[in-house]
């Protein structure tokens, strides 16, 4: 009983890390810089969904769509007014990283200004979860895990099978060549930001449903999301999802045997081990053409 519950606990945590890691990974892979703003998009989406659903009383599904729209619009705006001017000036990826950290602080600061520092909730009823195969799981948690699986498969198919996905992969491989063979770099960049923001938004709303919402929630997510994408193999989108699941599992199984205060430490010890012994991540051994990213 305990062990199956432990695995489920790990999967729930992992599913959250996985979604946000894929959001980071997508931008890193295609636009080639570590963008921290998905951490802020994550918070924005959670608060937007809360505002539309709880404050304005809209149906949850409508609130969900509106919140994702807000998140995507914000990501495109950030790209337009912050990243594009920097990229045009040929800023290096470190400058972009710092700029994105600034963006993260500004957006979360605005959220603090608008919504205040209190913790918000969607006010879902709290009941004992379903008992299945010796473990207990709630509806929201099932949604979380299923969503991350669907996103994983969906992203795989999108990158491999669709024209857009192939164009994105081409751009990931070599921007100059991609542009040379007629791929619209600007359009692909925007699409990358749209998908990345949508992933972060879905993660934010699900975390809001499962736990609660506060303006600080983005920070931990950045740490765990980045760790997950490094472990999976940075720049490899589906691998980032696997990385997320691994962290979730190892953290939870780890504190079963170790004092629970070490939970975060476990995740970061794994990160350091990977950085030293396997900096390309689990799936980073193959050449880029062979992997899907």
């Amino acid at each position: 009983m305990a062990f199956s519950q432990l695995i489920i606990n790990g999967l729930i945590a992992g599913a959250i890390y996985a979604l946000i890691a894929s959001s980071f990974s997508l931008i890193f892979n295609i636009i080639k810089f570590m963008d921290l703003s998905p951490g802020a998009i994550f918070v924005t989406a959670a608060f937007s969904a809360y505002a539309f659903n709880v404050l304005f009383g809209l149906h949850f599904l409508i609130a969900l769509i509106l919140a994702i729209t807000v998140a995507v619009a914000l990501a495109l705006l950030v790209n337009l007014i912050v990243y594009q001017p920097l990229i045009k000036r040929k800023s290096d990826s470190f400058t972009l990283l710092l700029a994105s950290f600034g963006v993260f602080l500004i957006i979360t600061g605005f959220i603090l200004l608008i919504f205040g520092a209190e913790v918000r909730t969607f006010g879902l009823p709290i009941t004992k979860g379903y008992e299945l195969l010796g473990f207990i799981i709630t509806k929201t948690q099932i949604t979380l895990i299923v969503t991350s699986i669907v996103v994983f498969i969906g992203l795989q198919l999108f990158m491999k099978k669709t024209k857009l996905g192939k164009a994105m992969r081409a751009m990931a491989d070599n921007k100059q060549v991609a542009s040379g063979i007629g791929i619209n770099v600007k359009k692909i960049t925007n699409i990358t930001f749209i998908i990345s923001a949508a992933l972060a938004a879905i993660a934010g709303i699900l975390v809001g449903l499962e736990q609660n919402i506060d303006h600080n929630m983005g920070f931990l997510v950045i740490l765990k999301g980045l760790t997950a994408s490094v472990i999976g193999g940075i720049g490899n989108v589906p691998a980032a999802l696997i990385g997320g699941l691994i962290i979730g599992l190892v953290e939870n199984i780890g504190i079963w045997y170790l004092p629970s205060g070490y939970k975060d430490a476990i995740a970061f010890v794994i990160l350091i081990i990977f950085l030293i012994f396997r900096p390309k991540g689990i799936f980073g051994v193959k050449t880029r053409e062979e992997t899907s990213g």
Partner: peptide, 14 residues
């Protein structure tokens, strides 16, 4: 123990 800011208590509770 749980860390400040962490919202996932499931394994400790388990």
């Amino acid at each position: 123990a749980y860390e400040k800011g962490l919202q996932d208590f499931r394994t400790q509770l388990l």
